[in-house]
């Protein structure tokens, strides 16, 4: 498939925003049961939610560049019963709304004790909103990933590993950002976030490498025999019906040379996993903001490469019909 940067930025930026929100709720849940103490929680959660919201808004903004008619984008909420894309279009603004409410509740300290328990739980309304947001956050990850995983003939994508990768890679980048954010805003949380960022990044490494290994051994169900319906082991295309390009030759091929394609794979394997892990390990003890911020930036750059490779690797069966110019 042709990797579109609008979709690459949509999925990676909203993944960061979602992961950061999950990180905030994690800290609040820890604090609610007394595992950790929070200093100045309203600023920490309020500004953190704002950052998450900015990432989500940037992702939403990027998504509009994918549309031929962005002014009709509102129509895409219509088919939520059948279309994962429609579901994503509904869940993304819904999630942004919840993140906004979560941030506002914290920043202005509107946190009534709705559960009627005061010890050890504190900040109960915002905690409830955070838990609802967590459910919606995972729903958004699933919607985004299922857009790709539900297409059964894109065999590289049609696997539960796609969903696992979207969840774990998004969450990993969000927790890495949360580590850098904590180093600035609440240094005593840096180690907590860094440890989680390392754990989630390592989990993402497992599922992503697993999906790479799976896709290496993939057996394509379609061939020229089934595409044209002629039972012969030697079928060669002589003409695709036109001499230059068409939508079919542009949209379904990544167009990069083999070396570039492989280089991007190794680039993301290095940038998403070992480099941020080393930087996190180096920066977590001293809460070195620059090192932790570098960890996030490197990982995010790696995720752009990862998403590019994710699209480029998928081999659409329609390509069987477009192999020879002539």
């Amino acid at each position: 498939m042709h990797p579109a940067f609008s979709v690459i930025f949509l999925t990676t930026l909203s993944g960061v925003g979602q992961g950061l929100f999950l990180a905030l709720v994690t800290a609040q849940s820890y604090a609610a049961v007394g595992f950790i103490e929070l200093e100045n929680p309203s600023a920490f959660f309020g500004i953190g939610s704002l950052i998450a919201l900015l990432f989500l808004a940037a992702g939403l903004f990027a998504s509009f560049f994918h549309l031929g008619h962005p002014e009709r984008a509102w129509r895409s909420i219509a088919r939520w019963r059948t279309s994962w894309l429609s579901r994503e279009v509904i869940v993304l603004p819904l999630f942004m709304g919840v993140v906004f409410i979560y941030g506002v509740l914290h920043y202005f300290g509107w946190d009534p004790n709705v559960l009627g328990v005061s010890n050890p739980l504190q900040g109960q309304l915002s905690l409830l909103v955070g838990l609802v947001g967590t459910v919606i956050c995972f729903a958004l990850f699933v919607c985004t990933a299922m857009i790709y995983a539900c297409i059964k003939f894109l065999q590289e994508w049609h696997t539960p590993l796609t969903v696992a990768n979207y969840i774990l890679l998004g969450t990993a980048s969000g927790f890495t950002l949360a580590t850098a954010y904590a180093a600035i805003q609440a240094p005593h949380l840096t180690t907590l976030y860094a440890v989680w960022a390392v754990i989630i990044t390592l989990s993402a490494l497992v599922t992503r490498v697993w999906s790479l290994l799976r896709n290496r051994r993939i057996q394509y169900k379609s061939s020229l025999r089934t595409a044209v319906g002629i039972s012969h082991s030697n079928i060669v295309q002589k003409s695709q019906g036109f001499m230059a390009g068409s939508f079919n030759t542009r949209e379904f091929f990544h167009g990069a040379p083999r070396q570039v394609f492989l280089a991007i794979k190794w680039a993301f394997l290095v940038l998403v996993f070992p480099v941020p892990l080393l930087l996190l390990a180096a920066g977590m003890g001293s809460s070195a903001v620059a090192v932790l911020l570098a960890a996030f930036l490197v990982q995010y750059a790696g995720l752009i490469a990862e998403r590019w490779f994710f699209f480029a690797q998928a081999n659409h069966p329609q390509n069987l019909y477009y192999q020879t110019v002539g």
Partner: peptide
């Protein structure tokens, strides 16, 4: 009603749909 998101063309295994680059 089409918003030009091209998702349907991804979902056609035969590559039978083509986007109109101007409309």
């Amino acid at each position: 009603k089409c918003i030009g998101c091209k998702y349907c063309s991804w979902a056609c295994p035969y590559g039978m749909r083509e986007i109109d680059e101007h409309q």
